[in-house]
Design a protein around this nucleic acid. Sequence first.
DNA 1: ATTCATGACGTTTTT
DNA 2: CGTCATGAAT
Length: 748
Amino acid sequence: MKNLFRTGTKTENPQMSENKTLSAAPSFFVENLNPEQFEAVCHTGGHILVFAGAGSGKTRVLTSRIAFLINEKGVPPSEILAVTFTNKAAREMKNRVGEFVPDKISGIWLGTFHSICSRILRNDIEKLDLGYTNDFVIYDTGDQTNVLKKILAEMNVNEKILPPGVVRSRIERFKRDNKFPPSQSSFSPGEKYVFEKMQAMEKYSAALKSANALDFNDLLCLVDRLFEKNKDVLEKYRARFKHILVDEYQDTNRVQYQFIKMLGRNNAEICAVGDDSQSIYGWRGAEIKNILGFADDFPGSKIVRLEKNYRSTATILDASNAVIDNNVHGVKKNMRTDRDSGEPIGIYEARNEFDEADFVVSKIKSLVETGNFSPGDFAILYRTNSKSRLLEDSFLREDGISCVVVGALSFYNRAEIKDLISYMRLLFNSADDAAVLRIINTPSRGIGDATVEKLSEFASLNGISIMEAIHRVPQEDFLKKRAVEAVGKFALMIENLSQSAKGVGAAETLKAIVEKTGYRGFLEKDENKKENIDEFINSAHEFDERGEGEADSRNFVEQIALTSDSDTETGDDTVKLMTLHASKGLEFPVVFIVGVNEKVIPLVRDNNYDEIEEERRLFYVGMTRAKERLFLCYPIQRKFYGREETMISSQFFDEIPEELKKYEDFKPAFRYRAETEPDEDTQPLFTPVPKSSLKIARGFAAGGFVRHDKFGRGKVVKVEGTGDNADITVLFPSAGRKRILASFLKKL
DNA sequence: ATTCATGACGTTTTT
DNA sequence: CGTCATGAAT
Ligand SMILES: Nc1ncnc2c1ncn2[C@@H]1O[C@H](COP(=O)(O)OP(=O)(O)OP(=O)(O)O)[C@@H](O)[C@H]1O
């Protein structure tokens, strides 16, 4: 690893070779970049890798380079391909580049690997001759699992023994390593059920193909395959893209790496930026060796290192370096900063997870009140999504500050939204069996399981799609009269919707679907879900207005499929909650990391510490998001599956020098304190009751907060009666004022 | 066909 | 502990 960059050009004299450009470039680039950055921005005539630590200005290099190419070098935007890993990063880059070249931004191909590949396949998938057409849909993991479930059932494989999810993730692992379809020898030695898996995988491929559907990994794999098989297509894209820019190069997996290599090695100038210390996606196939081997893979390339950190205070920088230095693997970087030390790192050892959440919220509140920060300056980072709920609840109890959970399970994952998406999918791709199966009886229209079973059987027997089978029902007689009628009505409805969807926007189609299917009636009194539907129609509307590409359902559905990192526009002035993973590439004035416990960060299951270095990198990523202040919190106790469990601080926490830490004062809320700690000044929030009588006195009180399954969180206005049958009047943000039986409410 | 009851299972991380 | 899925009962 020491000789990593032997073929790379030395970078000691950055300006020597570029003097001409330097003097010709507008002062803008000179003023906003340091010499090393400037060199990377202007470098032409070969590939370049910017290899540098967190906060050193890599992303700035990327955006400046695009601006430079277009504005100074006169490169047509259409010759530029810029790839990121997340939609958020893509959007960010679009915004920043847009400031430099407002009118030319749309000519650039800028997006995630997946969206770029999808775009390529939309144009050229038919040239693969696999039977796919450019109307293909993208199956999400749920769709994939459902397909496999059906297949395994048909194979008479007990799903307890070989669950569909296992096969699904096995498929994924093969695909991202570009080893699909696997041969027997591709499986690990001693792996169970190889035969069944192979058979299921074969059927899976066939099923997706006949549904004209691709899974996530197909998007990448099939582009690679296309480039390998069809030189004309490859040459077309090679001729087009003269400049390829890749963000977060350390997180590329094999297929992505091959994509870049095939497309750019011999005909484009590749500019990649990355940091091996921030590689946190090994579990989904990212290979650090891609960035470490850049100089070897792309001969004649230049390596630029950036060693100045512009983001964080010296304290934060020192602390994060102290942590990452414990990794044996990884290239040491000598980061420096001109900033002074700033505040020490705030530490809070919490009684439990509730107390931890309370601390965070109260600290944010006081920092906002003392005037130096506003809510939008804060981010709270955690290892697992499950932490977000606790924090949200704490925010709700505290008036005045709102928060938004970034990413997580997106809006589009809700059942009602997925139903509507399935309808849309069906309208432009009637072969989409997964979609049909989802909505054929939702809302219920008298097509029962038995009927679906028969249709499905008939379809696979005749090698046709389920929708086609439905169309043939009148000519065959495998269904009872009642079912024939119900199925016929369904077919007619889809046909009508399909006709009216032609040439109109996604929103209009969606409205028609909701109306014709009677979906609102089906939801009955579930106001929350109805609101979701409205919101969904709204977002379709926005999509149509935005006018990126054709405003039709197909494009809308595609955008959704590629946007799992829910498009939470982060413009609002609210506190952001997200996972450590989701925080990569972002920065915030104040960062809280919660759950800094051993076995949480690093997350360890079954005492398996194999991934300790990746976990340390993850923690490093989190720490280095902070500009001004960093807080680390860990509870010493938690409830886990109902059990109380004691916890200790993370080993990473112990790697931070004590002199950089400052332990914060915070008085836990009454209910978390031991009885030996009487409290003089705080009234208990709820009257403490003996455990035995808990059922009767549930402790609801006006002013307290509760959660309801349908309406979400709300504030208690009035309590009448006692016990489970008490009538509680609650004010919900969305649903308004409601009187609800106590047994339907959970106290927050 | 809808409703209720029981049980399995779960907390990585995401395109 | 709480949620979700499956299965029996009406
Ligand atoms: N030459 C510079 N002068 C002043 N500030 C800079 C300079 N370059 C970058 N910055 C600022 O430093 C911060 C970090 O930059 P950037 O996000 O580009 O770093 P990065 O290397 O991509 O970080 P990471 O890898 O942690 O995501 C940003 O706030 C950016 O505006």
